[in-house]
Simulated assay, not measured.
Amino acid sequence: MITFKSEREITRMHEAGKLLAACHKLLRQKIKPGVTTLEIDRFVDEFLIAHGAKSEQKGYRGYPYATCASINDEICHGFPRAESLKDGDIVTIDCVVNLNGALADSAWSYPVGKISTEARKLLNVTKKALYIGIAQAIAGNRTGDIGHTIQEYVEGRNYSVVRDFTGHGIGRNIHEEPQIFHYGTKGRGIQLKEGMVITIEPMVNIGTWFSLLDDNGWTARTVDGMLSAQYEHTIAITKDGPLILTSQDD
């Protein structure tokens, strides 16, 4: 069931989004060779608590951490760990913030030290895919318009779009309807309407889009060991167009 949010609810989700964006901005300086993703996870957890918020994913279906930290060939839901990040790695930090009951969700891929040209291009293409998808998130369009635009852009640059994981509605719960596929057909899918709040979060691989699941039951990685990246924003559908609730630009 799709839930529609009032202006007041969107304002509260925007406040949660601003806090999450502030956290991601701080991570730009903290993610470097020698740092562990467990240390990053602890920082995020403590930052949110200090600002009167919490990580909504911590404890969600038994998930034990405040963040997902996915390194290199890990597509999503990577467990933070004590292994140090190395020069040339890429790491995606994903977190859902709960601020006084209002949720916001954002993932961001970061370079660790000096990365390869191939890795840099992957990050650039994935981030661009996010924003061209957001441009389609307007009332009257359909979810397929978002997916088609992202797929066409990504595959046109010889990358693949992960199909096993999707964006989603968000509100009182982390995952609500509708699902937001990052591939698809123009004019198909659920029609977007004012008051909907969704995440757009393309996961893009250098190789094939197929994934496999680790024994922990959470972490998905590429089947061919190639790099994967992800960027995600929480978006409100408004009469004035898409409103990015987790924007790092303000």
Rank of each mutant, 00 (worst) to 15 (best):
T117A: 09
S116A: 15
A50K: 12
K86D: 07
I75T: 09
F43Y: 15
R42A: 14
A69W: 04
G59R: 11
A50S: 14
C68R: 09
I71S: 08
T92W: 08
C95P: 00
S84T: 10
Y60C: 07
F43D: 14
E74T: 14
A50W: 02
L103T: 10
H51M: 01
K114F: 02
A69H: 05
I71H: 01
Y63V: 03
Y60L: 12
A50F: 12
G59A: 02
Q57Y: 04
K86Q: 15
R120H: 10
G101N: 10
I49G: 00
S70Q: 11
C68V: 00
R120F: 12
V44H: 04
R120D: 11
D105R: 01
G101V: 10
E83G: 00
Y60G: 00
T92Q: 14
F43S: 11
G62M: 12
T67Q: 11
A53P: 02
D87E: 15
K86N: 14
L48Y: 07
K121A: 06
L38K: 07
Y60E: 14
V96F: 00
V112G: 03
K121F: 03
H51D: 03
F79A: 13
Y110Q: 08
R42K: 15
E74S: 08
D105A: 01
H77Y: 09
D41C: 07
A107V: 00
S106K: 15
D41T: 13
A82R: 12
T92C: 09
K54L: 09
P80F: 03
G101C: 10
V44K: 01
P64G: 12
Y110E: 09
N98S: 08
Y60K: 08
A53H: 02
N72E: 09
D45I: 06
S84V: 13
W108H: 10
